[in-house]
Amino acid sequence: MAANPAKYEKLALVCSQTDRADKAARELRESQDFVPLSQADAVIVLGGDGTMLDCLHDMLDGGQILPVFGLNLGTVGFLMNRYHGAIALGRRLAEAKAMPILPLRMNVTTQSGERHTFCAINEVSLLRETRQTAKVEISVNGRVRIPELAGDGILLSTPVGSTAYNLSANGPILPLDSNMLALTPISPFRPRRWRGAILPDRSRVTFRVNEPAKRPVAAVADSKEVRDVAEVHIEVAREMEMVLLFDPHQALDERIVAEQFMT
């Protein structure tokens, strides 16, 4: 759907710490007034996907979630739009396609009993901490599906993250509107024939670490890491829906489809 231009009159600017992004920020400030994030209707992000994810996480942590229009001044820029200078920024925002995304919520209990909660826009992954293979029990909606997965780890990915780490681990690419999650093993040793699962995004997934003293495991929600975990519960945080803004015909849903035909 097209964005309502009246909603995006007050813009905040977030910029990565690179020379390219700093130069672009100066160009935009010469033609556009920006306000603090607390007063904004939307956010312009200058940088790459890492800067975009940092901005989204800052909003999740701060409790103020605004639509975000990213301009790529990084490397890949999968979550970004092309940077064309300050020309027609207002028009681009008025014509932008709004894409809602839902983050995951990870609730972790460590071996010592500490509890942590983090959100992930791309994926939650469990990774072995040492040379020892990780052994993880996998449950979905309270039912044990795999009593013991042995390997480097396991991840649960959103559609947004399905073209990132999930794809590198040979997981499936998920259309943005699929309402699905990808459960993907990382270098699995046992069971040999299991290559993962596609789950409805209303699923609640639980990982329990087997033999934790011998085989310690870390849990990572995007870039937030908790070590020596005992149990991890993951579900979609529907009340934290976020909106990314894209130029027409260059939106995230089309990019995810196109990624399936890359050779």
Score class of each variant (00 low, 15 high):
128 R>L: 00
129 E>F: 05
130 T>D: 06
130 T>A: 01
131 R>D: 11
131 R>H: 05
132 Q>Y: 02
132 Q>K: 15
132 Q>V: 01
133 T>W: 07
134 A>G: 12
134 A>E: 06
135 K>E: 07
135 K>I: 10
135 K>H: 06
136 V>G: 14
136 V>I: 15
136 V>A: 07
137 E>D: 08
137 E>G: 12
138 I>W: 02
139 S>M: 03
140 V>A: 09
143 R>G: 05
144 V>K: 14
146 I>H: 13
146 I>S: 12
147 P>M: 02
147 P>L: 05
147 P>Q: 12
147 P>N: 13
148 E>W: 01
148 E>V: 15
148 E>D: 08
148 E>T: 15
149 L>C: 07
150 A>N: 06
150 A>H: 11
151 G>D: 08
152 D>S: 11
153 G>A: 04
153 G>K: 13
155 L>F: 00
155 L>W: 02
156 L>V: 14
157 S>D: 03
157 S>Q: 11
158 T>H: 09
158 T>A: 12
159 P>L: 03
160 V>P: 07
161 G>C: 12
161 G>Q: 10
162 S>V: 12
163 T>F: 03
164 A>T: 15
166 N>A: 15
166 N>F: 00
167 L>G: 08
168 S>Q: 12
168 S>P: 08
169 A>D: 11
169 A>K: 10
170 N>P: 03
170 N>R: 14
170 N>H: 04
170 N>W: 00
171 G>K: 14
172 P>R: 10
172 P>F: 03
172 P>H: 10
173 I>Q: 10
173 I>L: 07
174 L>Y: 05
175 P>I: 09
176 L>F: 06
177 D>T: 13
177 D>R: 15
177 D>H: 09
177 D>A: 14
177 D>L: 02
177 D>C: 01
177 D>M: 13
178 S>T: 07
179 N>Y: 06
179 N>C: 14
179 N>P: 00
179 N>F: 03
180 M>S: 13
180 M>C: 14
182 A>C: 12
182 A>N: 11
182 A>P: 12
182 A>Y: 04
182 A>G: 06
184 T>P: 04
185 P>F: 00
185 P>V: 04
186 I>G: 10
186 I>L: 11
186 I>V: 15
187 S>F: 10
187 S>K: 14
187 S>C: 15
188 P>Y: 04
188 P>A: 06
188 P>W: 01
188 P>K: 09
189 F>D: 01
190 R>Q: 00
190 R>G: 04
191 P>K: 13
192 R>Y: 01
192 R>N: 02
192 R>G: 01
193 R>M: 08
194 W>F: 08
194 W>N: 09
195 R>D: 00
195 R>H: 01
196 G>F: 00
196 G>C: 05
196 G>S: 08
197 A>H: 00
198 I>C: 09
202 R>K: 10
203 S>F: 05
203 S>A: 08
203 S>K: 10
203 S>D: 07
204 R>E: 12
204 R>C: 12
204 R>W: 01
205 V>T: 15
205 V>S: 05
206 T>E: 11
207 F>T: 09
207 F>H: 05
207 F>Q: 01
208 R>K: 11
209 V>N: 04
209 V>Y: 00
210 N>M: 05
210 N>A: 07
